[in-house]
């Protein structure tokens, strides 16, 4: 039934295909970033809202508020990130793992862009 498919997108699910809803195979690589890496957050944000759920980003941030604030990042900045915003690799790891926890979806490596 369609309502089951819909609700399935809201919660963690072991049944989920490891292929993203956008059809990209994101299975094989688990992204691990070092704390020294800097990550451009906008591509990650755009991928999440397009492929997980329109408000998946807000749910992720809600779960990680203390970690975001600990990095001295203002919530209003990370809620609607701009193209020049970067975050530490450790925080990116946390956001990606929270996405996995909430939606059972892995982010394709190309989405997590390191900046030099």
């Amino acid at each position: 039934m369609s309502w089951r498919a819909w609700l399935g997108g809201l919660f963690p699910s072991e049944r989920k295909s490891e292929t993203s809803p956008g059809g990209e195979n994101a299975t094989s690589q688990v992204i691990k970033l070092s704390e020294h890496d800097k990550i451009s957050v906008l591509p990650l944000y755009e991928w999440v809202v397009s492929n997980a759920s329109p408000y998946a980003w807000d749910r992720i941030i809600m779960r990680c508020v203390n970690d975001v604030l600990a990095e001295r990042i203002q919530l209003r900045q990370i809620i609607a990130p701009t193209s020049d915003m970067v975050i530490p690799g450790a925080l990116a790891n946390l956001l990606v793992s929270t996405l996995m926890e909430l939606y059972g979806i892995r982010v394709p490596p190309r989405v997590v862009q390191k900046v030099s």
Binding site: P54, D58, R59, I61, V65, R76, I79
Partner: peptide, 19 residues
Amino acid sequence: AVGSEIRPVVLNMLIESGH
């Protein structure tokens, strides 16, 4: 618990419930 800065996130979720 967290501070008033969290309100936009919370509101987004409640608005999304309406969607």
